[in-house]
Every structure is written in C-alpha cells, then in structure tokens.
Design a protein around this nucleic acid. Structure first.
Lengths: 215, 215
DNA sequence: CAGCAAAAAATTTGATCATATTGTGGCGTG
DNA sequence: CACGCCACAATATGATCAAATTTTTTGCTG
C-alpha cells in the first residue's frame, strides 16, 4: 500500500501535497505540527521536514508567530500567477508538442474525456484531480524538469483557493481549452498548443479573480 | 551578531543560502547533515529542515540514496532557466519601473558602480554579491512577491555554477546590461527596462552554456 | 452585586537536542 | 569477483525546554 521504500518524511510530504491540492484544507486554515504527527501517527521530525518543504513551495505559509497555515491569496497574487503560469506552462506545451506520439495524445484525450464526465456529474474533486492530471501528463513530455517544477510549485499555491472557487461556482463554469490543446497537438503545431494552454491558464486565473472579488 | 529572534533552522537556511550563492560550495560537492551540524554547532533537526527547504528550492539535490549534494547543471537546465529567468525577471523589471523614485535609481546606480570596481579588481565574490544585490534591489520594487520568489529560486539553482564559470573566465567577460537598465528606469520606460533585463539575463545564461561546453 | 479588564496560571504547540534504529557504501576475505 | 562484515551517515522518536495562546482568577469600577 504505502511505499515502504521511501522515507517517512517523503510520504508525509506527498500526503500533505495531495491534501492541499485535492483535500479539505481550506485557505486560512491553521496547520499544526503535532496535530499532523498524531493524525499520521509519525514523529514530528518528518512532519517538520515536510512542512518546511511545503512552505518553500508556497503551499503553506509561515505566519510569523510560529504558526503555519494554508495561504489566502490576493488579487495581486493571482495576477502574478496568471503571468507566470501563462509564460511557463505555454512553453511547456510548446516543448512537449514534438515529443508526443499519437498514443500519448490518445492518453491525454482519455483523461480529458474522464474530466468531462466529472464536470457533467459536478464532481469537484474528480474535476480537480483530472485537470491536474491532464496538465501534468502533458508537461511530462516537455523534458524540462526545471520548468515543470516551477509550474508544479504554482499549482500548489493556488490549489486550495481553486478548490474553494470550484466549490462555490460548480464545475460548469470551469475553463476547458483542452480540446483546443489536443487538436493543436495532433496537428503538431507547437505554437497553437502553447496559445491554447495560455488561454486555458488565463481563463482559470481570471475566474479566480472574479470569485475572490465576490467573496 | 546573529539574530537571536529567528529560530535556528532559519539561520541555518540563510547561512547555507549564502554559502551556495557566494561561498565555496562547488557543484557536485556532497553535503552531509552531520557535517553541517558539527560545523555550525547546532543539532541536526534544524539542519535537516534547512536542507529540505533548499532541496525544494533546487539549491541542493537529493541523490536518491540518502545523499545530498550541490547540483551539477546541464545544457538543458541552463536553457530552461534562460527562458524562465528571461520571462520572469523582465516582468519584474517592467513592474518595478513605475515604482522607482529617483533616489531608488541612484541607489541602484551606486550598487552598479561598486560592481564595476569589483569587475576592475577581478573580485569574483564581490562581483557575484553585488550583481545579485542589484537585481534583488530592483525586483524588490516590483511588489510581486510570488514572481520574486520564482526568480530567487532560479538564482539558487545556477548560483554555484555561475561562480565556477566566473572563476574560470574572470569577471571581465561577465555581461552587464545594468547601464541600459538604469537608463531605461530613468526614462520611466518599462518595456525598455524589461528588454534590457532580458538581455542581461540571456547573456549570462549563454555565457554559462559556452563555459560548460568547454568543461 | 454585576460586569469588565487585566494579570496570572495552565494548556497547547513549537523548537531543539540526544539517542536509538535502520539502511548504504566501502573494505577485506574467501 | 562475489559475498558478508563493519563503519558511518541518515532517519525517526521521545524527551525537554521555551514561547504563545487560552482560560481562569482576581480586582476594580459603576
């Protein structure tokens, strides 16, 4: 079940990462080391290490007085992430395009079809997971680990807030330029894939700005 | 002397960060937890936390088998960083431009003059510190903490390798578009400042590609 | 006497360390 | 050259100390 080979702090890190991206951690919610250590039934040293890593990722914030919590993000934050994601993720799509085999694209399309059914069902968690899976699978083919890390880091930042937004407005309103992306990939048109990705990203971020404004 | 208010793991983090950017840590060099704990005369828990953070920053790499070392970077890495730095740092310059007072620009110019004297003296460490200080001071005015973090993270990645390159070729060959940047800032021309920054960044990264090719 | 405010005690949580345990790489021997 | 033993470094825990928050108590005022 749990990967017995990887060290505990690694497992804790991935557990928390999933919780942040897809779990129930709400922006602003405090996170306690001892609470996590008890909940996961491990010592506090591994929890500490995982938390430091996540703070460095921007997935958690250090509140000054020794307190750690899930970040609340501002309009300015979203604006910055919109720029950074748009730049980096469109480049990832551009670089991935020539490396994708037809079978790879089929796989992406399969993920996207699952995603559509999640949207139809209003399954927010499923939507979030598969949307992430789609982008992650695409970017894996860019063979650009540094750019991918930068992108992944940004996802960790806006993950919890995106979940709140999705929860408030439902999955219907979420952006989905994935069809455009897939079409561009099939044509082997890297620039078109990059553009479609940028639009997907920007629509997502704009939705968040609107949602936070009405909060 | 040492900031008694901040926790030890924080101090260790900043100490290591400086060592990585300006110190004697060579790419490929292994880093041991106990070695650092002994050297800094602290327990290993804080050292562990600092190291996890730096790994997340990309400033150190986890070698799989419990080994941690200073990263060796490839041509592809530099290419990715060239793209990411160029995008992000030019945007930081663009955003900083309208926020800079004449006094702020004077301050930047002062840093750049110091930098020139370091180049003249062939003082590599001084060059690295002041080059970093120049960019950091400029980006601080962009009021874009997320973009700044992304940029800072990238500096940590290429820092050790840049030092090696500087050491091999001397400070004469290092790029310096700072005069162009300052001129654009004085004109209040954000796009020109962004362009000059992109050129500064790209020249730096290209120098590294050349240097690593001849290694 | 009631209500509020400030101070003090208690509880909770974080930070650090010392120590036990486990896994890895190196070295010698068959 | 392979196999097993040894030393060292990393991992993880629990204990201990310090800091902060919360709760309780106390004292003052209306």
């Amino acid at each position: 079940m749990s990967d017995t080979k990887s060290p505990v702090h690694e497992q804790v890190y991935h557990t928390l990462k999933s919780q942040i991206l897809f779990g129930d951690l709400v922006p602003g919610q405090p996170v306690t080391i001892q609470g996590l250590a008890d909940a996961l039934d491990v010592g506090m040293t591994p929890v500490r290490e995982a938390i430091r890593r996540l703070i460095s990722d921007g997935a958690l914030v250090f509140q000054g007085n020794r307190r750690v919590s899930v970040p609340l993000i501002s309009d300015s934050d979203i604006d910055q992430m919109k720029f950074a994601r748009s730049s980096i993720e469109s480049e990832l799509s551009r670089r991935a395009t020539p490396n994708l085999s037809p079978a790879d694209i089929d796989e992406l399309e399969r993920i996207d079809q699952c995603l559509d059914s999640m949207i139809a069902d209003g399954d927010i968690n499923g939507y979030l997971r598969l949307n992430h899976a789609f982008h992650k699978a695409l970017y894996a083919h860019a063979h650009a680990p540094i750019l991918r890390d930068l992108a992944e880091r940004l996802w960790l930042r806006f993950g919890p807030s995106l979940r709140v937004v999705s929860g408030r407005f439902g999955t219907q309103s979420m952006p989905d330029r994935h069809k455009d992306i897939i079409a561009a990939l099939r044509e082997g048109d890297a620039n078109k894939a990059a553009l479609a990705t940028a639009q997907d990203v920007e629509q997502g971020m704009e939705l968040m700005i609107g949602a936070l404004a009405s909060a």
